[in-house]
Amino acid sequence: MPYGLQHEQEDIAPVLLHYEEYESLRLCDYDGLTHQEASFAMGISRPTFTRIYAVARQKVAMALAEARQLRIEGGKIYYDSEWHICRNCGCYFNNPDKEETVVKCALCGSSDIDSENDTIPSGNSECVEYRVCEHCGAVVNQQLFTIEGYYTCPACKHQHHHCRRKHNNY
């Protein structure tokens, strides 16, 4: 935890950096992900991510400029429970009771299980955004939709004002 110059002075309040703001800085500036990839890793939309990230930078800059203490706490966060993968039936399952250790698969009872760590999509190839044409049902790479105020499906030339989004690794 970084201490500002005047950390012993009681009257200067520390800058509170929320957990999600810290996470956005870590993913973007430390891990070097793009906003798109980082938002995907955090399970939020790209615009929401950019908003959180902007606040995070503003707070860090404030702490540096005003030599205030930076404290990481609070925010809207959710800790995912442990997830495991079964090599026998190929299913994923979580552990709702954190006190008990998982020894066998919740579905088939096999003991051939592996703990699953969250894999952050790396590289653009895994994080291509797809759009589903509501008119003809074609799944098309978003970049192939031409933007002229709205999206036009390259398959049926149907024009959309907004389309459903689809990620290929979801």
């Binding site: 039936c89 190929g90 994923y92 399952f93 709702p96 066998k104 919740a106 579905l107 088939c108 009872g109």
Partner: peptide
Amino acid sequence: IQMISVKDEKSITEIIQLIENN
């Protein structure tokens, strides 16, 4: 409530069979 995610296509009978064998 425990979540179990099955990605490959399995029928309801197959799932019940797996739970029974468990």
